[in-house]
């Protein structure tokens, strides 16, 4: 019984981390209709940024998180203005190609700049845990979970209640009507992509604190984020949180009851199931 409870705790905390990783991907996908295959690479860059801030300037990864997010926002904004706006209305295949290319370039630039050595962001408290009777709650994962919830709800409120957020949603729903009301799509797209990349950067800080960083972590993270976005649905950031939690718990339980090689089978199996049963995601609007 303790084991089950412990594994459930692990799964929920893992799911929070998953959610914050997928949040940016889902936002960009939902609004710009760009499936950003370089999303994982941006998480990797964010993680390296946080690692440098921690290692050379002594800035705690959780304090460095806003800074990393802002820097990554600027990177994302400029990329969208300079590169992706060229293809934003092109068929989806073109955007897939260009973001895939971006992923390859970023990965290899990262190896040139940072070498293939593994890094970890390892503040003294990273391995601490809180004991609840026989159960253990890892502190860093709990903090990452907290950040995930705050960011998800924050993005949700931002989209619902701010002028900019409403403009983003309006553009996603009906570009022509939004332009008639004075929305400048190029700027708006860049802001949205910037937010997506900023969220990836934030996720990178958290990922580096609980796992390890090397230039090649991006591709698998992108695949995971992709699955979470589909499972949760693209309409609503809360859906991504649900998608992340569902995936985290299912993976953990699969490892416990079926076997450690079946984690990925389970997560992508759920993805297929969701596509069949609820194509717009668990929290998506039913068509």
């Amino acid at each position: 019984m303790d084991l089950l409870a412990q594994v459930l705790i692990n799964g929920v905390l893992l799911g929070g981390l998953y959610a914050v990783m997928a949040l940016g991907l889902a936002l960009v996908w939902g609004v710009l209709n760009i499936v950003n295959l370089a999303h994982g690479a941006f998480i990797m860059l964010g993680a390296y940024l946080a690692w440098h801030l921690y290692t050379y300037l002594g800035i705690d990864p959780f304090l460095g998180l806003p800074l990393t997010a802002i820097v990554m926002f600027c990177v994302g904004y400029m990329l969208q203005r300079g590169l992706l706006n060229l293809v934003v209305r092109a068929p989806m295949f073109n955007t897939l190609l260009i973001t895939f290319g971006l992923e390859v370039v970023l990965t290899y630039l990262a190896q040139l700049a940072f070498s293939a050595d593994f890094r970890t962001i390892n503040p003294p408290y990273a391995g601490n845990s809180i004991a609840l009777g026989p159960l253990v709650v890892p502190l860093a994962r709990l903090m990452a979970f907290g950040v995930a919830v705050v960011l998800t709800v924050g993005v949700w409120l931002f989209l619902l209640h701010t002028k900019l957020g409403r403009a983003i949603r309006a553009t996603a729903q009906n570009l022509v009507a939004a332009r008639l009301y004075g929305v400048e799509p190029r700027h708006l797209y860049a802001v949205t992509f910037g937010i997506g990349i900023g969220l990836a950067g934030a996720a990178g800080c958290l990922y580096g604190t609980v796992s390890q960083i090397n230039p090649y972590i991006g591709a698998t993270l992108t695949a995971k984020c992709f699955a979470i976005s589909i499972i949760g649905g693209l309409d609503n950031p809360l859906g991504v949180l649900v998608g992340g939690l569902v995936l985290g718990v299912i993976e953990s339980l699969t490892v416990l009851y079926i076997g450690a090689t079946f984690g990925d089978v389970a997560s992508f199996g759920v993805l297929v199931l969701v596509l069949i049963v609820r194509p717009s995601g668990l929290l998506g609007k039913t068509a």
């Binding site: 084991l3 412990q6 692990n10 698998t220 953990s252 416990l256 450690a260 090689t261």
Partner: peptide, 20 residues
């Protein structure tokens, strides 16, 4: 006696089983 997927990044479930 457990086999896991190469490149696995999450060992929480296995570690909990080891502890248990």
């Amino acid at each position: 006696d457990e086999r896991y997927t190469s490149n696995a990044s999450d060992f929480n479930s296995l570690l909990s089983q080891i502890k248990s």
